[in-house]
Amino acid sequence: MVGKILNIQVKAGDEVQEDDTIIVMEAMKMEIPVVAPVSGTVKEIKVAPGDMVDSEQVLAVIE
């Protein structure tokens, strides 16, 4: 599903727990939280607010 990045809730270096919201995107008139699939340290955020993204795209890297 194609959507737009609304905001990013973490930055590189942040510790995140599994299921923490890291990015909020908007698609089909809904604000959809993108949650961390694993616990770890955010290494890189690959998108910025306003970017259009598609499924399968890497949004962030967690180590």
Binding site: M1, A27, M28, K29, M30, I32
Partner: peptide, 8 residues
Amino acid sequence: QPMFLAGS
């Protein structure tokens, strides 16, 4: 289910 694909 609005959590996935906005429930579409």
